[in-house]
Amino acid sequence: MSGKPSLHEIEQAEKQPLWRRLGWLAMIWTASVLALFVVASLMRMFMSAAGLTTH
């Protein structure tokens, strides 16, 4: 197959409890926010090392 989930797999995923699906959503959102924080902190650190400041 082309890597797409089958209809049976989709139906099984939809049968998961709401709290589990919301938990995954919250976990993915938290991970993305943390990744953005890390990237922004690294950029700020490199800019400060290069002599660029905000004041």
Rank of each mutant, 00 (worst) to 15 (best):
S2E: 10
S2L: 11
G3I: 03
G3K: 01
K4T: 08
K4M: 13
K4Q: 14
K4Y: 12
P5S: 02
S6M: 03
L7R: 03
H8N: 08
E9T: 02
E9C: 02
E9H: 01
I10H: 00
I10R: 02
I10C: 01
I10T: 00
E11F: 05
E11L: 08
E11Y: 05
E11S: 09
Q12R: 10
E14K: 07
E14N: 07
E14R: 06
K15I: 04
P17D: 15
P17T: 08
L18Q: 15
W19I: 02
W19H: 15
W19N: 13
R20S: 10
R21D: 08
R21C: 08
L22D: 00
L22A: 04
L22R: 03
W24S: 05
W24Y: 14
L25S: 03
A26D: 08
A26L: 12
M27F: 11
I28R: 04
W29L: 14
W29M: 03
W29Y: 03
T30W: 07
T30N: 01
S32F: 14
S32A: 15
S32M: 13
S32E: 13
V33I: 03
V33E: 01
V33Q: 05
L34G: 09
L34S: 09
L34T: 04
L34R: 01
L36N: 11
L36H: 12
L36I: 09
L36D: 04
F37T: 15
F37C: 15
V38W: 03
V38T: 01
V38L: 11
V38A: 08
V38S: 03
V39Y: 10
A40H: 09
A40Y: 14
S41D: 15
S41I: 06
L42D: 05
L42C: 06
L42K: 07
L42I: 01
L42Q: 05
M43W: 05
M43E: 09
M43Q: 08
M43P: 00
M45F: 12
F46Y: 07
M47Y: 04
S48N: 09
A49L: 15
A49M: 10
A49I: 08
A49G: 11
A50D: 07
A50W: 07
A50K: 01
L52C: 09
L52S: 06
L52I: 11
T53W: 00
T53C: 02
T53K: 01
T53E: 02
T54V: 14
H55F: 15
H55K: 12
H55Y: 13
H55I: 06
H55T: 13
H55Q: 15
